[in-house]
Amino acid sequence: MEQKEKELQLQTRAYTVEEIATILHIGRSSAYTLVKKGCFKSVRIGTAIPISRKSFDEWLDQFDL
């Protein structure tokens, strides 16, 4: 990954569903289920579903992992 891509990734305010799945070590369909349940803030933009990084991090922090 190039330096610019790494910097952009650090600055982004949203995760993708695939990133959520990777972070949680779950499958994509399970990650989509969490999005559909409204566990964290997300918005559909065309086919993309960006997930609020802040909302996801707060949701994950409640589990004391």
Score class of each variant (00 low, 15 high):
M1H: 09
M1N: 07
E2R: 10
E2P: 00
E2I: 09
E2G: 09
E2S: 15
Q3R: 14
K4A: 14
K4R: 12
K4S: 14
E5T: 09
E5I: 09
E5W: 07
E5H: 10
K6D: 09
K6N: 12
E7R: 13
E7K: 14
E7L: 15
E7I: 11
Q9D: 11
L10R: 13
L10A: 14
L10C: 07
L10S: 10
Q11K: 14
Q11R: 15
Q11F: 11
Q11D: 10
T12Q: 15
R13W: 10
R13K: 15
R13Q: 12
A14N: 12
Y15H: 09
Y15Q: 03
Y15G: 04
T16A: 11
T16W: 02
V17S: 07
V17H: 04
E18Q: 15
E19S: 08
E19A: 11
E19V: 06
E19W: 03
I20G: 06
I20A: 09
A21S: 08
A21L: 08
A21Q: 07
T22W: 13
T22H: 14
I23N: 07
I23V: 12
L24T: 06
H25T: 09
H25Q: 15
I26G: 02
I26Y: 06
G27E: 11
G27I: 04
R28M: 12
R28K: 11
R28I: 10
R28P: 01
S29R: 15
S29Y: 12
S29L: 13
S29P: 01
S30A: 13
A31E: 02
A31M: 04
Y32Q: 03
Y32L: 09
Y32V: 01
T33Q: 15
T33H: 13
T33D: 15
T33N: 14
L34G: 03
L34V: 03
L34A: 04
V35H: 05
V35P: 00
K36W: 12
K36P: 00
K36G: 02
K37E: 15
G38P: 00
G38V: 05
C39Y: 10
C39G: 06
C39W: 03
C39D: 10
F40C: 02
F40G: 02
F40T: 05
K41M: 13
S42V: 02
S42W: 05
V43H: 02
V43L: 10
V43T: 06
R44Y: 02
R44F: 01
I45Q: 01
I45D: 05
I45L: 05
I45P: 00
I45H: 01
G46V: 03
G46Q: 02
G46M: 03
T47G: 10
A48P: 00
A48S: 08
A48H: 07
I49P: 00
I49C: 07
P50G: 07
P50I: 01
P50A: 06
I51K: 06
I51W: 02
S52C: 09
S52A: 08
R53H: 05
K54V: 11
K54P: 00
S55D: 04
F56P: 00
F56S: 05
F56G: 04
D57M: 00
D57F: 06
D57W: 01
D57E: 11
D57R: 02
D57G: 01
D57C: 01
D57S: 00
E58I: 04
E58P: 00
W59E: 07
L60Q: 12
L60R: 13
L60D: 08
L60H: 10
D61P: 00
Q62M: 12
F63Q: 05
F63T: 01
F63W: 11
D64R: 15
D64F: 13
L65F: 15
L65I: 12
L65C: 08
